[in-house]
Write a protein that binds this DNA or RNA. Structure first.
Lengths: 78, 78
DNA sequence: TATAAACTTGACATATATGTCATCATAGGC
DNA sequence: GCCTATGATGACATATATGTCAAGTTTATA
């Protein structure tokens, strides 16, 4: 898969899960320990950054979702 | 989970899967498109770097393993 | 249409990932 | 002992992730 496509798919998946939990970007950011600033979340959800494993792990913890689930967006399409 | 622990677990998992496929680090590196150099693989397996999503994706493709499986190393322990 | 909540965007300093090279260490087989 | 395969390590230039701020946009709603 091409890089930009991958990042967009991941971002869309995070957004979908976040919204399913009724959280705003800022809520997720605060849960991840950020200083009341959702910039990083916005970038990730838009696919404008290539997050590291540790960042993915922090999202996973904050959303209470296994990392494996966050990356399982290829079961549907390819 | 603490960052260093996470990176070490991920690295150990990659190493286990790579070896189960009978591949040397250099084989994986070449499959990922690197120039006959396994330095990056060595770093990742040792947990000395915090790989990006795209790097994880390249490993996934090269090892023919879903990304979700590569990150599913918490099913066993925590 | 005014207001507020939610999200986006550009910029910034800092840290670190990436890919590569040269070199070193280790282990096994001959 | 020698050679080869394998992996580890330090250094390097370059690219980019991270966390933050300020400012802008979008959306909804009263």
């Amino acid at each position: 898969m091409e890089k930009l496509v991958l990042l967009k798919k991941f971002g869309a998946n995070i957004k979908k899960i976040r919204e399913s939990k009724g959280l705003a970007q800022i809520d997720l950011a605060v849960k991840m320990g950020y200083a009341d600033d959702a910039t990083s979340i916005s970038r990730i959800e838009a696919g404008r950054t290539n997050p590291t494993l540790f960042t993915i792990h922090k999202i996973s913890t904050a959303l209470d979702m296994p990392m494996a689930d966050l990356l399982d967006f290829n079961a549907l399409e390819e």
